[in-house]
Design a binder for these strands. Structure first.
Lengths: 334, 334
DNA sequence: GCCCTCTTTTAAAACGTTTAAGTTCATTTT
DNA sequence: AAAATGAACTTAAACGTTTTAAAAGAGGGC
C-alpha cells in the first residue's frame, strides 16, 4: 500500500540504492538524477518508513520519560521542558507514568531494553523504586543511556544525575519561618531529605521540631488536606508549617480555612516547588522555587549528549540546581 | 552485542525459526525443546528486538497523543487516562504537545505517516488547526486510525469523535447564575460554542449579554487575570461571569481579590472543566464538570478498536458525554 | 587503443524478527 | 508393505531501509 523506495526506483528507472542515496542528500549521486528522484518521491507522496529505518539505524529517535504521574504540575512541567528540548533534536518522548507503582517502572525498564527507545530519563520516584537501580545500571550497560532527575543513584559515571538542592530548599523554608519569629514549626509529608533540612535550620537557632508536629501524609493535595484537618483540630497548634510540596501546602491551607483557622494570621504555611498555582492561589503561596524547567532541559541535553556519544564534563555527571525562596502571602511576621 | 534469536538457536542447536516459534508459545514445537529454548533465552537474558519486530509486524504498539500542552490540568488528566487505557493493552503513548503551534501539529502528522505509531488521538486544538483536517483524513486513509477528542471534524465515519457537550456546559453555567438572580452576565475567553451556550441561556429568560461584558482574553490563568483586572477597574461591573475554563476562572478571581472585589459577594464566578484545583481553591470554584478521564478512556478504547480492526457502533463514531453543574463557593444568590 | 582516474550507479548484505511453505521421519492406516 | 497422516523442525522469503564494496561509464592523457 504505502510507497517504498522500490516504487520510486522503478518509476525513476534507477536502483533502490540510488534512490536512498539521493533522498538522503548524498553528494555521490548526480545532481540531475537527484532532482528527478526527489520530484518523483514528492509526486508519490513518499514518506520513509520509520520502522525499517529504526531497524537498520539501531535508533528510534525516541526517549522514554519515567515519572510518577502527569497529573501533577511539577512533573507536567518537567515533561514539557524535556519534550521541548528533545523535539528540537528531532526526537520524541514516550510518556511513562508509573502511578508510583514499582511494577510499572519494571515494565518500562523491560520495554526500554527491547530497544524501543534510544535513552531514558527517570524522575524522582521515591524510595520504593530504589530496588530497580541495579536493573537500570544493567540497561545502561546494554547501551541505553539513562539520566536521573532528582533521584538518587550511586554511579554517576554510568548514570548522570540532575537535581535541585532539596535539602537546602527545606532549610531555606524553615529558616525564613524562623526569621519571621516562628519557633514552633511543623513539617508535612514524607521526605527524609526535606525533613532534615528543616531540622538543621531549627538546630542552627537552638530549636527543635516536635515529633507530634510531623505529619506523614500522602504527598498530594488530599494528603495536605488531611494533615490540615488534624492540625485544625488541635488546641495547641504549630505556628508555622513547611510542606513537602506546593500541592500539599494548598491542601493544608484549604483544610485550615475550611475549619476557620486563618492563614497566615494564625498559621504560616510554606510550600516547595513554586508551581504556577502557587502564585494564583489565595492566599498566594510562599514557597521555594525549584527550577524544574531548567532541570528538565538540562537532563534532556545531557541525555542527548550521551545518545550522540559525546563525553560529559564532570559537572554534567552531577548537576545541581540552586533553589530560591519566593515570599508571598501565606506567611507573616509574628 | 545484544542477544538475538540466532544466538539462542546456536546454543540450543536448533533453527532460528524454532526459537521464534518456541518463544512465542507456538504449539507446533515440542514441549521439551520449547522449555529448553525458553531456559536458554532466560539464561542469556534475551529480550526481543522491538525495532525488528515492528518492521515485520507493521506495528510499533505505540500511539500518538496530540494535545496543546501538558502543563494544563485538563490535558494532563486526558493524557493520564489515555495512557492508562492503552497501557492495559500493552501499548505506549508518544507525547505530542503542540504548544498551540500549527506547524508543530504538522510535524507530528508527518511523523505519524512514517509509521512510528499505530494510531493517534488529536485533542481540542482550537480553530487554527482546522486546516489540518484534510491531512489527517489522508493519514487515516493511509491506515493510521485517528480519533478526535473535543475537536470538530466533518467525517465521523473516518474519524470518530469523543466529546462533551460544551455548548450545554456553558448553558448550564449561565442558567445557574440566572437562577441565582443575576441578570447582567459576562463571559471570559474565546469560544464560539461556549459563548453561544451562555447567550441562549440568557435568551431563554428574555435576557442578553452586553458586548462590553465579553472578554476575549488568552485561555490560561494569566488571561483570566488580565480580564479580572479590567473588570475590577470598571465602575459598573457584570454581576457574574462565566469563564471558558477553570484556569481562567481562577485567574479572574485572583485578580478581583487583589483589587478588593469580593468573590462571590460582589461578583459570582463560574468555571468549566472541574479540574482538581477547583475543589481546593479558595473560594472553591463553582463549575461545570467535564468528565475528561472518561472521555480519554473512551477515546483510547475506540482507537484501540480501530487499530485492532474491530468495527465501531454508530454511537462510538460520535460519542458525546454529558456535563454536570458542580455548585461550590464562588457563586451566591442575589 | 590502452590505462588511469573520477563520477555515478548498482548489487548485495545487513538489521532481527515473523511466518508460509516445505522437509524429515516416525507412526498409523489400509 | 505401501501410502497416508501428523508432529517437529527447517528453509527461505519478507518487512523497507542503509551502506559498503564493486561495477560501469565517462573522460583524459599518452
Amino acid at each position: 500500500m504505502a510507497v517504498t523506495l522500490n516504487d520510486i526506483a522503478k518509476k525513476a528507472g534507477v536502483s533502490l540504492a540510488t534512490v536512498s542515496l539521493a533522498l538522503n542528500g548524498s553528494n555521490k549521486v548526480n545532481k540531475d538524477t537527484k532532482n528527478r528522484i526527489k520530484k518523483i518521491a514528492e509526486e508519490l507522496n513518499y514518506v520513509p518508513n520509520a520502522r525499517a529505518r529504526a531497524l537498520v539505524k539501531k535508533s528510534t529517535k525516541t526517549i522514554g520519560l519515567v515519572i510518577p504521574e502527569v497529573v501533577n504540575p511539577f512533573f507536567a512541567e518537567l515533561a514539557q521542558s524535556i519534550k521541548d528540548y528533545v523535539r528540537s533534536q528531532d526526537f520524541n518522548v514516550i510518556l511513562c507514568s508509573t502511578d508510583y507503582q514499582s511494577e510499572e517502572e519494571l515494565r518500562y525498564i523491560n520495554m526500554f531494553r527491547s530497544g524501543q527507545v534510544d535513552g531514558a530519563i527517570f524522575a524522582c520516584a521515591g524510595d520504593l523504586m530504589a530496588e530497580h537501580n541495579d536493573l537500570i545500571i544493567k540497561l545502561v550497560k546494554e547501551n541505553i543511556p539513562v539520566v536521573y532527575v532528582d533521584r538518587d543513584g550511586l554511579n554517576h559515571d554510568l548514570i548522570p544525575i540532575v537535581k535541585s538542592d532539596i535539602y537546602h530548599a527545606a532549610y531555606q523554608a524553615a529558616d525564613y519561618l524562623i526569621s519571621l519569629g516562628h519557633k514552633n514549626l511543623g513539617f508535612i509529608g514524607q521526605s527524609v531529605e526535606r525533613l532534615s533540612g528543616v531540622k538543621s535550620a531549627l538546630k542552627n537557632q537552638g530549636l527543635e521540631i516536635k515529633e507530634k508536629n510531623i505529619y506523614y501524609d500522602y504527598l498530594k493535595m488530599e494528603g495536605g488536606y488531611a494533615a490540615g484537618e488534624k492540625i485544625a483540630a488541635r488546641d495547641e497548634k504549630p505556628e508555622a508549617v513547611v510542606c513537602l510540596n506546593d500541592e500539599m501546602a494548598i491542601g493544608v491551607i484549604q483544610a485550615l480555612i475550611a475549619k476557620d483557622v486563618k492563614v497566615p494570621e494564625e498559621i504560616s504555611v510554606v510550600g516547595i516547588d513554586n508551581i504556577k498555582m502557587a502564585n494564583f492561589y489565595n492566599p498566594s503561596l510562599t514557597t521555594v522555587n525549584i527550577p524544574v524547567s531548567k532541570m528538565g532541559e538540562k537532563a534532556a541535553e545531557i541525555l542527548m549528549k550521551k545518545i550522540t556519544g559525546k563525553t560529559l564534563s564532570p559537572k554534567e555527571k552531577f548537576f545541581i540546581f540552586p533553589t530560591k525562596l519566593v515570599i508571598r502571602d501565606s506567611t507573616r511576621k509574628i
